[in-house]
């Protein structure tokens, strides 16, 4: 098995576990932890890709809400301080990446004439 095959095996296992979690969460769990979801079914289809992709996060939050450990105060603390560090990161990383990319550009030799190596169908070599 090469690395690429290993990556896709991991993706298949991840998706299979996610499918089971999605099935249980959307049929049983969601009604227990969110009163607004009770009696609403169509929107649950929209949640399937997210659960397949981020199922560990779903389990973590589901357990917190099931066990009553959710702290209401945390719902009103936006992480606004991150804006400053994003600005610093953008100001440094974006110009640096573009300059590095431009520095790697190579000029095509001006005297080089491209040659067709393949043989056109019906052409005699």
């Amino acid at each position: 098995m090469n690395e690429a095959e290993a990556v896709f095996l991991f993706v298949k296992i991840w998706s299979a576990v996610g499918t089971v979690i999605a099935l249980v969460f959307l049929t049983v769990g969601i009604d227990r932890i969110d009163e607004d979801a009770r009696g609403a079914y169509v929107f649950r289809l929209l949640l399937i890709p997210g659960i397949l992709f981020l199922w560990p996060l779903v389990i973590w939050r589901w357990m917190i809400l099931e066990t009553g450990r959710d702290r209401w105060l945390n719902r009103h603390k936006p992480p606004r301080e991150a804006h400053f560090w994003v600005a610093v990161l953008f100001a440094v990383a974006i110009p640096a990446i573009m300059l590095l990319g431009l520095s790697q550009r190579q000029q095509w030799p001006s005297e080089f004439e491209p040659q067709q190596l393949s043989v056109e169908q019906g052409e005699i070599q």
Binding site: I33, L46, L47, L54, D70, P78, F90
Partner: peptide, 29 residues
């Protein structure tokens, strides 16, 4: 995109949801 529905905001809390959505900055870089 898959966590854009309002359910995710309520389920994850806005704080966790916003932290996930900061991935847009990593995506842009």
């Amino acid at each position: 995109a898959t966590t854009s529905h309002d359910f995710w905001l309520k389920f994850l809390t806005p704080r966790v949801w916003k932290r996930i959505h900061y991935l847009i900055y990593a995506a842009y870089i």
